[in-house]
Design a protein around this nucleic acid. Structure first.
Lengths: 191, 191
DNA sequence: CGTCTATTTGAATGTACTCAAAAGCGGTGG
DNA sequence: CCACCGCTTTTGAGTACATTCAAATAGACG
């Protein structure tokens, strides 16, 4: 069986066959059901996740109790509240499954052991953080400079096919518009 | 003379007096004039900056040629296009001085030497990246969930007094509104 | 001091919103 | 397996927040 997570590692670092076997032993495979909460806001992030199948979302709940989707994590994405996990602080956001999903997870102590065992993983996770940084930076400029329609097209480009798998209200929340407006826009513009 | 940059290091790591002296030798002090461009978009980021006095901004120029401010860096802030500097790729954004400023800068090779010489700097810059990540994440939720007025108040809280030092159009661009609307809002709401 | 750019102000406009109602879809239990 | 209940999406009408454009004023810089 070809493991998606090994292909993902291979994007940035080369692992010998023996190392691949060894690495996998650090990870725990878990199945989570649709709507399951992997990290409730306020809790300290215990795991870092790799999504093997299905999809997750991270969202912020505002003072009025409204949820705002910060990011989606379909298969082949890494999901974690960076600050909560690495600094072991209460999470400002919630991590939840959008579909029945299969994830690999690892705790911080084990991740640190992995860094000691196979040091090139330091490099791998540094690159991951930088990519996440880049993603967020693009998201900010996008929110500042682009219309709702352009942002929707960017969403479709970043997450191909995801619009058919998850609720429209989640996409609307990610774009910063109302579900009603997204619905109208898709009809008018034939998107 | 008490160095602002040393106090900044002390926020996350402890340095012995001898180390402090040694660390400073890695940095180069530079004076930049108002409107000077420290990193033009398209160039590969050569330096990482610490702002000792004055202020910088990072902005994205869209297809229509309009500038959108991603972040401000007044004194005691670290300024860098993370992806361009660490991955040595062409910058998507521009880094420019908003006021006459004094900065400390370091190249990537020298930074890597610093990591080898005083390994706890690895930790320092990892924390810095995580804090930047946190900042961006908050900015995204803020753009998704808050009104222009609330975002303006957040800006004032994050950058105390900066609204009196830089042009309103830059603040408007940071907030994602027009200068005309910011002006009107400040008048109506007495902000 | 003059020029250039930034800010203010006002009027007309548009993008995206709220609220409400109807229709559609999905999950659950009988 | 179907019927029902609840949540999601659609649709429409009226509305508000923020925009554009233009002109007047103020401020910064050489």
């Amino acid at each position: 069986m070809s493991e998606l997570i090994l292909n993902n590692f291979a994007l940035h670092i080369a692992l010998a066959p023996a190392e691949q076997e060894q690495v996998l032993s650090f990870w725990q495979k878990r199945v989570v059901h649709k709507r399951a909460v992997l990290l409730p806001s306020g809790d300290v992030g215990k795991y870092l996740y790799f999504v093997n199948s299905g999809s997750l979302r991270m969202f912020y709940t505002d003072n009025a109790g409204l949820e705002h989707n910060i990011c989606f994590y379909p298969e082949n994405w890494w999901a974690v509240d960076v600050v909560s996990f690495f600094k072991q602080k209460p999470a400002a956001n919630t991590l939840q499954a959008l579909e029945d999903s299969e994830v690999y997870c690892i705790t911080l102590p084990l991740l640190e052991e992995l860094f000691l065992t196979i040091p090139k993983f330091e490099r791998f996770f540094r690159i991951l953080t930088q990519n996440g940084f880049d993603l967020y930076q693009q998201r900010i400029t996008s929110n500042l400079s682009k219309s709702a329609e352009e942002r929707y097209l960017e969403f479709r480009k970043r997450y191909p096919g995801l619009e058919k798998r998850i609720a429209q209200k989640h996409i609307a929340s990610y774009l910063g518009i109302t579900p009603a407006f997204l619905s109208m826009m898709r009809k008018e513009k034939k998107l």
